[in-house]
Amino acid sequence: MTRSANRRMRIFYLEDNPLIAFHVEQLVEDLGHTYVGSLDSFKALKLQFENYSMDVALIDVDLADGRTGPHAARWLKDRKIPCLFLTGQDHIAADAGDIALGTISKPVSLQSLADGLLLVPE
């Protein structure tokens, strides 16, 4: 185990499918991190960002307000929040490769989430 794997992080999730958000919430807690909440659109994120304290954000590509995941990642990056795409749209995430630390493919598993989170710098 590396040190970063032991680090407890506050994790936020931008996702419009509540089933997947709920599942990821469980996985985040299984990994010993803190799940700080989720929102379903970039628009909602911009309005409510101040209500969440996060160390890293997981972001889907397609959200309730369209294909706005990459815009949200850019917006968060400008606010010094590192992002990981968590999506089935790997090709779009790959196009936006410079914005995020990496991509976790759907369906997500405990292992793939843990591996993805290792990319978050200390």
Binding site: N17, L19, I20, H23, Q26, G88, K106, P107, V108
Partner: peptide
């Protein structure tokens, strides 16, 4: 492909839950 992946992800989540 996108829709199938989403459905599979939903089913995975339902199963895990």
């Amino acid at each position: 492909n996108h829709r199938v992946k989403n459905i599979l992800a939903s089913v995975t989540s339902i199963f895990e839950m």
